[in-house]
Design a binder for these strands. Structure first.
Length: 414
RNA sequence: CGGGAUAUAGUGCAAUGGUAGCACGAGUGGUUUGGGACCAUUUAAUCUCAGUUCGAAUCUGAGUAUCCCGACCA
């Protein structure tokens, strides 16, 4: 698109109430707008990034057999009383409200209850299992202290997948598989190198669970790295002798390296907790009722967006990996709009995503904006570049540019 | 939820209890055009409610919001 048409503008200074690097850069570059603590609006550039991250996750969930749904955020009290999770004493971050006719409801912070209830209408026989359901949707959590920009909001995006299996054994096969699926997603998002499968306490449903922790000073968690090559770690808050024994970890706690990290995903074995609460059963081959064995698998596209910015920036701005950049190319014309226009049309014709800076402003401002927004490739068309034989191409994360003939640009960047 | 801090144009900052000013942004006119260029000119603000005072951005109280530390975090 033409940048002169983009309604957002960049800012030199970040609002003083925004301390986290990811929110500062995203606000300055016009990706998001802060509505209140922990609640952000996504503007065109931000929405594009969010959708690209979501689509990568969606593709991987589909590849493993996930079926996408979209559940309502509105949650009636009665559903949650079945699992004892309506009480504010049990779940302290509910956003609750009421209906005009007096019924109480809450805004969903997760969807185990809701989905278990739905699946009761569709799971009857062992032939119906296993089945994997997911959604990419907003979650609401009344955080006592929202912080860290997109990484800990009151309203945020979540991909939550739920598995329904015949047995614990069948569940575990899928559970293990999901570890690899998650790592594949992080690989596509360019963060695999820094992401560790992290052993954590399992909450009330199972002894252990796995978190996915990405090394970053901006993180809220601390992990002990167990195996740097296999990317295995243990969450510091759960690290104890029992874990060492249970996982056969042959190590000495004081030799371990501690790192700060961002929790970018988690997977849980839920066991029968929800199937018992909602009497979610199937008939086995002998015609006997059996409870469904459940698991849940979370990953937040909005937190990932924040984390990706934390991992990919320099003093001038964001450096988007190509997979989730809002555009592939930032085309900048310096007083050569005619040639730039031709390149723009050629790129569009080839379905290459391009932001064309056609504004009548100084070169310095265009470069500064381009660095701040962080589109992976920058193409500059100017008198100078034309004299040198074409347009300059430079990657956002590289210093040197090179000249490419104008007729070769589309071919080269396809 | 405990502790601490802050609240002034769209953004960032000033203003001893006495004329709310600067920079960026935005508008207009002009000069520029390879790293947020320049000149002229315009625009736009004291969180809310009380109180003290001749007079409050400034002092007091309450409220609200925001940020930080901690706690919490399926």
């Amino acid at each position: 698109m033409k940048q002169s048409q983009l309604f957002t503008k960049t800012q030199k200074q970040a609002p003083k109430d925004e301390v986290s690097r990811n929110a500062q850069l995203l606000i300055r570059a016009g990706f998001i707008n802060k509505e209140m603590a922990g609640a952000y609006s996504y503007l065109p550039l931000g929405l594009s990034v969010l959708n690209k991250i979501s689509n990568i996750i969606r593709e991987e969930m589909n590849a493993v057999g996930g079926q996408e749904v979209f559940m309502t955020v509105l949650q009636p009290k009665e559903t949650w009383e079945k699992t004892g999770r309506w009480s504010d004493k049990v779940v302290d971050n509910w956003f609750k409200t009421s209906l005009k006719n007096g019924g109480e409801l809450g805004l969903g912070f997760t969807h185990e209850e809701s989905l278990a209830k739905i699946m009761k209408n569709y799971i009857y026989s062992y032939k119906d299992l296993p089945v994997f359901i997911y959604q990419i949707q907003e979650k609401f959590r009344n955080e006592e202290r929202a912080k860290s920009g997109l990484m800990r909001g009151r309203e945020f995006f979540m991909k939550d997948l739920y598995s329904f299996s015949l047995t614990k054994e069948e569940h575990e096969l899928f559970y293990e598989k999901m570890k690899d699926v998650y790592m594949k997603v992080f690989d596509r998002l360019g963060m695999k190198e820094k992401t560790y499968v992290t052993i954590s306490s399992g909450g009330s449903f199972s002894k252990y669970s796995y978190e996915f922790q990405t090394l970053s000073e901006a993180g809220e968690d601390t992990i002990y790295i167990i195996d740097k090559n296999k990317k295995i770690a243990v969450n510091k808050q759960d690290f104890n002798d029992e874990i060492i024994a249970d996982f056969n970890l042959n190590l000495n706690k004081k030799d371990l390296v501690q790192e700060k990290s961002i929790e970018v995903g988690d997977i849980y074995s839920l066991g029968f907790k929800y199937s018992e609460a909602f009497n979610l059963t199937y008939k086995d081959k002998d015609g006997k009722d059996q409870f469904v064995f459940m698991g849940s698998y979370g990953m937040s596209p909005s937190r990932l967006m924040g984390a990706i910015v934390e991992l990919n920036n320099d003093e001038n701005g964001i450096i988007w990996p190509e997979a989730m950049a809002p555009f592939k190319i930032h085309l900048i014309s310096l007083g050569q709009n005619e040639e730039a226009q031709k390149i723009y049309e050629e790129l569009e014709k080839n379905n290459i995503e391009v932001l064309y800076d056609d504004r009548e402003i100084s070169a310095g401002e265009k470069f500064a904006d381009s660095d701040l927004i962080g589109i992976p490739y920058r193409i500059v068309v100017s008198k100078k570049s034309l004299e040198n034989g074409g347009a300059e191409i430079k990657k956002r994360n590289e210093k040197e540019s090179r000249i490419v003939k104008i007729k070769d640009i589309a071919k080269e960047l396809k």
